[in-house]
Design a protein around this nucleic acid. Structure first.
Lengths: 176, 176
DNA sequence: TCTGGATATGCAATTATTTGCATATAAAAA
DNA sequence: TTTTTATATGCAAATAATTGCATATCCAGA
């Protein structure tokens, strides 16, 4: 599973509490891997009981202890091993396409309305990605360096969303 | 869940046995919804026990009975209801991007090799899609009509794969 | 001061998917 | 004639993901 290894990747860079990791996950990997907070907390528990990460308790006044997770050697090894073995090609399961395929059972206005909703979401995503890209491109060459690979994942998002929106135009043309 | 409704969509057009449906599923919906034969057989069972599909047994010599499934009114209603309510935007969970994000932990040749494997798969997919597109485009206008919506789902596949391959060029440029 | 939202954490049940196994026939290829 | 490939089905266990619920704090604004 990749979620485990995505979390290990984050911990490889820096330790953190569940919530820290959740936020870092959403901000950095969330564009190409969706995971709920429940999933992340429960994976942290599993990773810990498998010895791939350590956990230190930081007492807090009033609040319950803060659990800070950090990488172990076993975790590092597991991550490297995962990286060295091929992953499966992204599996697509797109409910909207199922619906479009069955679109003859629905009237065009309803299809159009739903297309418009999806389009808005994709446009918003693209906007977010383009903003992030501008931030990256504004950096000096040396400052870019550590973000080169993340930037490539961002490019995937940009090209993917642009392609989706191009396609949406074709669908709109048909529905009009 | 969309798998249920994808199967109902197939049955809306024509009845069939589990294996019939499996093949039709792979040929028509398989490009945007991946499901194993086990999943399809088990969903048929559930759909049947929920009364959304009927099942008639066709005795066969030597072989076990052929179970032929067909739509019920309840199934049709459930499909329409599903179609009328919005579906969620396609969720992306792309393990290769997780790996690329963590690529600094791996040497470039290994990343390049894996990229090449994925590229080959995407190229093959695109090839398949383009062949199907040629077949569609060769039809007369009247014969095209019933495949207009499926064709749009095919276009999604084409534009999606092209975008992936464009992106792969950027990644290759970086890795070289 | 009350209220709502962000912060911060998790359990439990259900649903969906994957993986491994299992069986049996028929046709085609070696 | 043996082996492989396609046809044709499915169960069971494990893993992954979703959904619903639950708790408790802190801070800002009405």
């Amino acid at each position: 599973m990749s979620l485990k290894h995505a979390i290990l990747t984050l911990l490889e860079t820096e330790e953190g509490s569940g919530y820290d990791l959740l936020k870092r996950f959403k901000a950095r990997l969330g564009f190409f891997w969706n995971a709920s907070h429940q999933q992340i907390y429960s994976q942290l528990k599993t990773l810990h009981s498998d010895g791939l990460i350590d956990c230190t308790l930081e007492p807090q006044k009033g609040k319950p202890d803060r659990k800070v997770y950090q990488m172990t050697q076993a975790g590092h090894d597991a991550l490297i091993e995962w990286l060295e073995n091929p992953v499966k090609v992204d599996k697509v399961n797109d409910a909207f396409l199922v619906k479009l395929y069955a679109g003859h059972l629905l009237d065009k206005p309803k299809l159009k309305a739903e297309l418009a909703e999806h389009k808005e979401i994709h446009q918003r995503m693209l906007g977010t990605f383009l903003t992030l890209e501008q931030q990256y491109l504004a950096l000096s060459e040396t400052k870019k360096r550590p973000f080169e690979l993340p930037y490539l994942t961002l490019r995937r998002g940009i090209l993917g969303e642009q392609a989706w929106l191009e396609w949406a135009k074709e669908v709109e043309a048909f529905l009009n």
